[in-house]
């Protein structure tokens, strides 16, 4: 460091290799947890290590994960959508109404996706045009969307979906590989590429880290957020199609409480709830972790309420442990 040195210094691009960073990442830790739970499950129940059992296990997370991918992008961008489960109810109800009017499967799918998109647009306009905080807006629309379902359906239910509609939630593409699992896997790749390999993904991170500086840097912040709300709505519509197809009926209580499981999945996957960081691989692993835990407990005949206690503890545990560990090391 001689003082007369005025040549431009060359700055290395990166100090650590991408592999070294990947090994130390949250995603790696989560993967270890997933493998651990898998092994525990196979010891806990003789029925677990069976191709059909494992296939059944995936249904515990596929629909939630579809929404979780879009939700991950939305949370990285510093926003949130708590109305997703209610969008499912409204989209499913809309499909039921279309069914009563004689719609076939293609129309039902369009109605489901269209309703999701409209709900997302409604949330997005309120947040981006009127500058309202998304957590408040979507708590409001959470009641609004499901409320509309209740008005239309009351205590009743729509049944009698066409046989080919059952393909989405009950069909298999090949052997034990379900349609839902294939949709999940395709979406994982698409969202992974969008968030990590495109300019749009970079804009999402920029907005989540500092929306003002992103705006000053020429990012169209409002447009980015609007697109993310539309995507989240669309994914909720897709999840509504799968769930309705799997259950074979629509009730206004469909998917109740699912928004919290989706957010849990996203946060468990390492997405910062305050925005700015997180990854799709993390969310994918988190989906498997949650699916394996609920399925494993199900095999052991653990009641549902205990399961949700377990999921809650798991979330707090995996979030708190690394911080406690860091604190202990410093002390």
């Amino acid at each position: 460091m001689s003082m007369a040195d005025h040549r431009p210094r060359s700055i290395p691009d990166q100090l650590t290799t991408p592999l070294a960073r990947a090994l130390k990442s949250w995603e790696s830790l989560l993967l270890v947890v997933a493998i651990g739970i898998f092994i525990l499950n196979s010891f806990a129940s003789p029925y677990f290590l069976n191709a059909w059992s494992l296939s059944d296990a995936t249904f515990n997370f596929t629909e939630k994960a579809m929404i979780a991918f879009a939700m991950a992008l939305l949370i990285v961008a510093g926003e949130i959508d708590l109305s997703v489960a209610s969008i499912i109810a409204l989209a499913s109800t809309a499909m039921g109404v279309a069914l009563q009017l004689g719609a076939g499967t293609p129309v039902l799918v369009l109605v489901g996706l269209g309703t999701g998109l409209l709900c997302g647009a409604f949330n997005g306009v309120l947040v981006t045009r009127f500058g309202l905080p998304s957590i408040v807006v979507t708590i409001g629309t959470m009641s609004l969307f499901r409320g509309i379902s209740y008005i239309i359906l009351g205590d009743g239910a729509f049944r009698g979906y066409p046989a080919d509609f059952a393909w989405f939630g009950q069909g298999y593409v090949f052997w034990v590989i379900s349609v839902e699992f294939v949709i999940f896997a395709l979406l994982a790749v698409v969202y992974g590429v969008v968030l990590h390999k495109t300019n749009f993904g970079r804009a999402v991170y920029a907005v989540g880290n500092n929306a003002t500086a992103a705006l000053f840097s020429g990012i169209r912040v409002g447009r980015v957020k609007m697109i993310l709300f539309l995507l989240t709505g669309l994914m909720s519509g897709l999840a509504a199609i799968c769930l309705t197809s799997r259950l074979g009926s629509t009730r206004p209580s469909i998917g109740t409480g699912m928004e919290l499981e989706v957010v849990t999945m996203v946060v468990l996957g390492g997405v910062n709830i305050l925005g700015g960081s997180g990854s799709i691989p993390g969310v994918v692993i988190a989906a498997f972790v949650m699916g394996l835990v609920t399925f494993g407990l199900g095999l052991l005949n653990v009641p549902g309420i205990v399961m949700s206690i377990f999921i809650g503890l798991l979330l707090i545990g995996v979030i708190a442990l690394p911080r406690l560990w860091a604190k202990l090391r410093r002390a």
Binding site: N199, A206, A213, G218, I219
Partner: peptide
């Protein structure tokens, strides 16, 4: 607040308005 996104890496800050060129 307005100039830099301080939590993001140097290179991503530099290229943010020029992403059209580097992609």
């Amino acid at each position: 607040k307005q100039g830099a996104i301080t939590t993001m890496p140097i290179f991503q800050n530099v290229t943010l308005p020029s992403l059209g060129k580097t992609s």
